[in-house]
Amino acid sequence: MSGNMNLTLKVWRQKNASDTGRIETYPAKNISPDMSFLEMLDVVNEDLIKEGKDPIAFDHDCREGICGMCSMYINGRAHGPNKGVTACQLHMRSFKNGDTIIIEPWRAAAFPVLRDLIVDRTALEKIQQAGGFVSVNTGSAPDANAIPVPKWNADEAFNAAACIGCGACVAACKNSSAMLFMSAKVSQYALLPQGKAEAKMRVTNMLKVHDEQGFGACTNTEACEAECPKGISVSNIARMNREYAAAMLAGE
């Protein structure tokens, strides 16, 4: 078909967590600009399988930019060159015929590579389990409209809660810090009356686990915000810093 492209892929291949891994080169032929990036990889994989080679393993699920499963560093950027999209929403019309594309997994000590482009993001889970919740048992809730929440707070909380937990912030951060991820959750609850009761405990517990999991510290480069497919703001990190200091330094 006219307008289709031929590309060269340089892809990180790693058999399993203990393999050292290396970059290998594959051609991607006759790629339609209407394909998503992952569909392009599907095409390459189908060829690899038929050639008797191992297909490239990559995480993906919803393919509509909301599940947060897809996670790849494309040409030096988390989720590729476009702002505000995940790899599954990145379409091949963003590339030109003849381009070489480097595809790597998220890089962080806290995200060990499981295979090829797939990393283990359990560390993010652990942070959530430490405090990313409001302690309310099923059935014990008051009427939903019993506590009015100012629209600004509700909207800000929503903006923070829009995080899809993909880990692009960690991948893009030169320190592999998960502050944006964690602060989004801390902020969501800090902004809502429902979350206030255990705010101090939440932020201290979550940060403790964040540090234990081997994520780096934030140095305010703001790369996380720039690369976040959901546009989560670093003002959440500021809020979390505030919350944490208040929780730790306030007298008892």
């Binding site: 040409n75 030169k174 592999s176 810090s177 081997g214 994520f215 140095t219 703001e222 790369a223």
Partner: peptide, 25 residues
């Protein structure tokens, strides 16, 4: 040092300037 340890394997094709200022990095 601690932050370096948080990323033992570097990217082969990092384009860090696209997302963060040189000074901050």
């Amino acid at each position: 040092n601690k932050n370096r340890q948080a990323r033992p394997v570097k990217y082969a094709g990092a384009k860090s300037d696209a997302s963060a200022s040189w000074s901050s990095r």
